[in-house]
Nucleic acid binder design. Structure first.
Lengths: 216, 216
DNA sequence: TTACACTGAAAATATTGGTTTCCAATTAGT
DNA sequence: ACTAATTGGAAACCAATATTTTCAGTGTAA
């Protein structure tokens, strides 16, 4: 018999509509990380992302307005990962400033040192794309600076450094480390320092910047 | 009488072919600075640059292979401007480290603080454009780091700081200051610190990083 | 079993800008 | 005056992608 009202099953292959959408989004984000992080955002087409994610372009446009939106989501997700890493670092009972800072640096850079694609998306691919993304980047960078400031407050409270840096210091720190990381990623793996060495060097610069030395 | 061989005047409106080409290139570079520096490289078409430079697209393709080449030239030119500014700074007889560094910072950031378009092209618009430009950027950044190192050697030689920084320090410095500048440029002019204040803050961070304070 | 929801794949369209070609006007040299 | 060089501007062409639509196959609920 013919129902004279629309049927709304919602279920499909045993899963809810919402779940299915989430799943597709996850696949798209994975594909985006892979493609944007290796070939670059500019060199990636909607078609390619969809193919890599095994999602139809049709579905793509049901989930995102355009590729820019996908990039933005990926950017925000990766950023949250880093922010979480910074926030979640245990303020372990470090003996001195250097080891405390090293732990912090290792936590913050962890995701990007582990997975270069993340570094590339986070620091290269989102630049100069759109007005909206530039704004997002500005805000995010400030959030990051705030997180760094908070971390240093903790270290200062533990008496390991004289005073937490303020003003432009954390911003310069973030930009600087970012640049160091970009240079590292753009260097052939064969001629890079080890991760540990890299973290050590970065930590030393930071300690000097935030140490007890007074400008004269 | 009809010459049965091609004439090669070369002159046009009183100027040599080469001169005319140079002139067109100059106009194109001016237009590129204006458009890339305000609307952004991605939002600028060949047509727009040509129109703004009062050069025909026809001539454009006689002078450059494509827009990427124009951007690259502009980038290299602007960079040389900054490098020259750093190199040409007089190692004035500064009384202390802070004022010596301030002079250096003022010289290096001068062009970009004066003309925001330059800052934008130099730091934002060239990112993520092409493989070739990424390589160029990597090399340029290293040249810049070398120039900074040289400047600090001078300051150290004058006995104003204990030792010139080395390793990642100058790289982090450059990236950090760049980020600070980007944030500044992307901030509404009404809520920015003054240029002098900005330079002062940056100089203080540098002095701390390179000062006599020892990590502990 | 029937009407309709859901899906991926592919086809059809629309946009956008790059690139080349053509044209009319101007200038150089003889 | 005459031929060829030079130029800017417009038009013509093209290529690549984004975006929308269609289609055929499946699953769902009554």
């Amino acid at each position: 018999m013919r129902p004279d009202f629309p049927v709304e099953p919602g279920l499909w292959h045993g899963t809810e509509r919402n779940t299915r959408d989430q799943e597709r989004k996850r696949r798209l984000l994975d594909a985006a990380l892979e493609l944007y992080g290796t070939q670059g955002y500019r060199a990636t087409t909607v078609h390619a992302v969809c193919q890599s994610a095994r999602v139809s372009t049709r579905s793509f446009y049901e989930l995102y307005a355009d590729q820019g939106e996908l990039l933005t989501r990926l950017y925000l997700d990766l950023n949250n990962e880093v922010l979480d890493a910074i926030a979640a670092r245990t303020v372990l009972p470090a003996a001195d400033a250097l080891s405390a800072v090293k732990a912090l640096v290792a936590a913050a850079l962890g995701p990007m040192l582990e997975d270069e694609r993340k570094a590339r998306v986070l620091q290269v691919e989102v630049v100069g794309v759109s007005q909206a993304l530039a704004r997002e980047r500005r805000l995010t960078t400030r959030r990051m600076a705030a997180a760094v400031d908070a971390a240093f407050d903790d270290i200062a409270a533990a008496g390991l450094i004289e005073a937490a840096p303020k003003g432009l210091t954390s911003l310069i720190l973030i930009g600087g480390i970012t640049e160091a990381l970009v240079q590292r990623v753009e260097t052939k793996p064969s001629q890079r320092e080890s991760k540990a060495e890299f973290i050590e060097q970065v930590a030393q610069v930071i300690v000097r910047m935030t140490g007890t030395g007074t400008p004269r």
